[in-house]
Design a protein around this nucleic acid. Structure first.
Lengths: 208, 208
DNA sequence: CCTTTTGTACTGACTGGTCAGTTCAAAAAC
DNA sequence: GTTTTTGAACTGACCAGTCAGTACAAAAGG
């Protein structure tokens, strides 16, 4: 029943689940959860419908595990970026800037996941609402931590409102990136990063 | 046969359509388009299902008209705010600030519409995709116009990337406001406005 | 006046189709 | 020989859209 060491679960099964995640994330991002059928997911993943139900209890459970999986990747990437700057002795603003870039890289790599996340996050009355709350808090908390550290060491103004500013920064990156992907795909990641960086560092007003 | 002059459409019918808009916007914001049934919409509006189809060709058409209606309100409100500042002889940064506030007021007043807009905007493969594109461009264009004017009169840096910055600003307001409504409802509109204003004006870094 | 007609708005039972989830025997993979 | 997958058939709930009929007010006709 357990072939590789302990904990992991079999590789074959894991590969099937991965295929299902990938198929589901694309379809749900395009069409929404309710408009996506299990038959479609199975077909896109190249497995039989029975396999979906052998691996996941239901369509919603598949979706919830997908969410947890994706946000795990994102927070790890953000935390990693902040830490790398800290080790190099960079400032907290540098850390925020690095996190903006990490966010953009993530969205560039997993655009479907990001679409789906944004589309579901502010819904109420959904089965997976609590999963999303937890998962959102994890992501925002990473930004809040850096802001707090910046205020503590005097680098950022004491007057900033940490939760609101963190939310605004996340939103800025999220929406700018989605807009980039959907409506201005000819721009490069560096263009987008530069524009956001400028906004973060208050180099918008003033002719220099 | 025709009660009020010609052209306008009866008041009764208009009132029914309005009730349907209100019912639909709430339900779709909560549950998404596909998960919301026409029966639910009719029930919430207090009319029979047939009435929905008497007034709108289909569920999607109802939704599209809803979108156009809502974004019309938003752009009018943004343009109005910018114009008011211009008349008072304020700067372009002041105009942007006023638009941020107008955006927040709008979202505060029509939270369901905003949720629904964000949730559907970046979807692909949807029937109303083209409607959304048009409607998004209208809203973003208002911000771009002000940015362009600011650059022209030397108030804003020539190096800013207008489309990307506009998208980022809109995103910042949108996400911060939705977050405020969903996760920090105890905050006041002024709190949120102050946090965003600070970010816009680059008063985040530096201890003053 | 009264009554007949006409057009508009609305109603709600009904239909045809769709889809999540089930079942299971047999094959494949390991 | 155990786990995982297959594939196809099936069920039952659910739902978008339809349609024959109702309600009613205003006009037309007498």
């Amino acid at each position: 029943m357990e072939r590789s060491a302990s904990g992991g679960g079999s590789t074959r099964r894991e590969a099937t689940r991965q295929k299902l995640y990938e198929a589901a994330v694309t379809l749900i991002a395009e069409q929404g959860f309710s408009a996506t059928t299990v038959d479609e997911i199975a077909e896109r993943a190249g497995v039989a419908k029975g396999t979906v139900y052998y691996n996941f209890a239901s369509k919603s459970v598949l979706f919830e595990e997908l969410l947890r999986h994706g946000v795990g990747l994102l927070t790890a990437s953000l935390r990693d970026a902040a830490e790398r700057v800290a080790l190099e002795g960079g400032s907290k603003v540098d850390a925020l800037d690095a996190m903006i870039r990490a966010g953009l890289v993530f969205i560039d790599r997993y655009p479907a996941f990001t679409q789906l996340y944004v589309a579901e996050l502010w819904r109420t009355n959904r089965a997976w609402q609590s999963t999303l709350m937890v998962v959102r808090q994890q992501a925002v908390a990473v930004v809040e931590d850096v802001l707090r550290a910046g205020v503590a060491n005097g680098e950022l103004s004491e007057e900033i409102d940490i939760p609101l500013t963190a939310a605004a920064l996340v939103g800025m990156v999220l929406v700018a990136a989605l807009d980039w992907q959907s409506f201005q795909p000819e721009r490069t990641l560096d263009d987008v990063h530069a524009a956001l960086s400028r906004l973060l560092q208050g180099r918008v007003s003033g002719t220099r």
